[in-house]
Design a protein around this nucleic acid. Structure first.
Lengths: 130, 130
DNA sequence: ACTATAATTCAATGTATGTTGAACTATACT
DNA sequence: AGTATAGTTCAACATACATTGAATTATAGT
């Protein structure tokens, strides 16, 4: 039932957690790196070819993605000099869940009438009702 | 059919557009404001009560959200001093579509074998074939 | 006209972070 | 041992932007 004066409900997800993930992914180069990782491009050198970025900069962005838990690292079993990064599927699933829960259009509620001129009438009537 | 040397596919969405949206929403206070807007708290003054932030700062964040097309503005018809902000449903729908298309787990491909020691063998064999 | 209210705009500040170049680490080859 | 390769770490820099306080706009009431 619609209630035009009910106080707002707490967010259905951990906003700090969601904001951190979004911040990490909002950086254009990192978003592109994440795309390339999904595409199977997973070593620093080959990422560099596509991105035309210095390897240390790619390292930096990969580190940020990794520290956010979004990607995983693995060394080559034959030649451990090579390091492969890949999308953390569990994290991606969690991310999608949190996103959907938060940005669900059905969550949108009509405007509360506790502000503005209508709000004044409502506030007065509630004083009368007790 | 899986191809371990095929070049990466272009991103299925406009990455710059997605990154901009994410950047706007990645700011913790803005994400919280967006949540309150979904909850029907839609004037600067009442947002201020919940956020305990200065009205000019709230104005700033609302402006950023508006310039990103994520929210809409409307003046009160009875008393035009009051301004109401609300979630742009069309934009939210577009945002969800872009998000889903990009972060679809099914997009994840296996590692390309063009890098590392295996890559060398593949590169050699392709020279023989090609 | 004058005052009050709701909100925005402006200018200044501090901090976070993407970028760069150089130094360093770890592993492999000969 | 010595060199090469793949990648990371470190330090310095530059820029973007959230925050703050003061000034300004727009509308309404008296």
């Amino acid at each position: 039932m619609l209630n035009y004066t009910a106080p707002p409900t707490p967010a259905p997800v951990d906003l700090a957690r969601l904001a951190k993930w979004l911040k990490v992914l909002a950086e254009p180069n990192r978003l592109l790196i994440f795309h390339l990782l999904m595409e199977g491009v997973q070593c620093n050198c080959e990422l560099g070819e596509h991105l035309k970025m210095a390897p240390n900069l790619i390292s930096h962005h990969l580190r940020v993605l990794r520290e956010a838990g979004l990607i995983e690292v693995e060394r080559d079993s034959l030649d451990a000099r090579w390091i492969y990064y890949s999308v953390n599927r569990q994290a991606l699933q969690a991310l999608n869940q949190v996103w959907s829960a938060f940005f669900d259009p059905q969550r949108i509620k009509p405007r509360r009438l506790t502000c503005g001129p209508q709000g004044e009438m409502i506030r007065l009537s509630q004083v009368h009702e007790g």
